[in-house]
Amino acid sequence: MVTQAEWERVQGELCFGQVFTGTVVRVPRPGAIGVFVDIGLSVGGFVDVVLLPRRRTEDWPVEGTVTDFEVWWVHSDHQQVRLKPSDPKYLCEDFADFVAQFRPTWPSEIGEAVRRPRPSSL
């Protein structure tokens, strides 16, 4: 866990859809949780189970896999950058339907800052 100031600094440098090459460092329970990814930041990256292949967990990236990931959102409580796989072979089969149902604004969010700047005080 990093300091709040470091977490805010990291968030301030991230944009939705930003691509990082990362290494899968932990797959604790295939099919149940997701995968932890080192993307070279002081905070961890994580791909949630809902974004990974559902039909065949053997299609998940294994520990040591190096591939590209996109910033999907941030989880402030866990100081974690939530990612989605860039490579469709690691992405859930129904990603387009998932986005349409749960995050229909996703395409327009790409390139937007993850953390909105705080209003300046007068």
Rank of each mutant, 00 (worst) to 15 (best):
G64Y: 11
G64V: 14
W72L: 07
G111C: 07
T67G: 00
A32T: 13
V24K: 07
V50P: 01
V25F: 02
P85Y: 01
F102D: 11
E6P: 00
V81C: 04
D94W: 04
G22H: 13
G17A: 06
G12N: 14
R26N: 07
G64S: 07
R26L: 12
H78E: 12
V81W: 04
V71A: 05
D77Y: 07
F95G: 00
R56Q: 11
G34T: 14
D38Y: 11
P30H: 09
Q11R: 13
S120C: 09
V62R: 08
P61R: 02
T23F: 03
V50I: 15
Q11M: 13
W60S: 06
T23N: 01
A100Q: 12
F16T: 14
S86P: 00
V35Y: 03
V43I: 15
T67L: 02
F46K: 10
Q101E: 15
H78M: 07
I110F: 02
V81F: 06
S120N: 09
G40I: 12
P104C: 11
R116V: 14
F102Y: 12
P61G: 02
Q80I: 14
R103A: 14
F95H: 14
V62D: 05
E70Y: 03
I110S: 03
W72N: 03
E70H: 05
V25T: 14
V19W: 00
S108G: 08
P117D: 08
V71W: 02
I110G: 01
G45I: 14
D38S: 10
T57Q: 02
P119C: 00
D48K: 15
V47G: 03
I110N: 04
A113M: 08
R82W: 08
D97M: 06
D68Q: 15
G17N: 07
L52W: 00
R9T: 06
W72H: 06
H75D: 14
C92K: 13
V19M: 01
T57A: 05
D87N: 12
L41P: 00
D48V: 07
Q18H: 09
L51C: 05
D77I: 10
V50R: 14
T23D: 00
A96Q: 12
P53W: 05
Q79C: 07
G40M: 09
V35N: 04
L51Q: 07
Q79W: 06
D77G: 12
R82C: 13
F36K: 09
S120R: 13
Q11S: 06
P104G: 12
R82S: 07
V50Y: 06
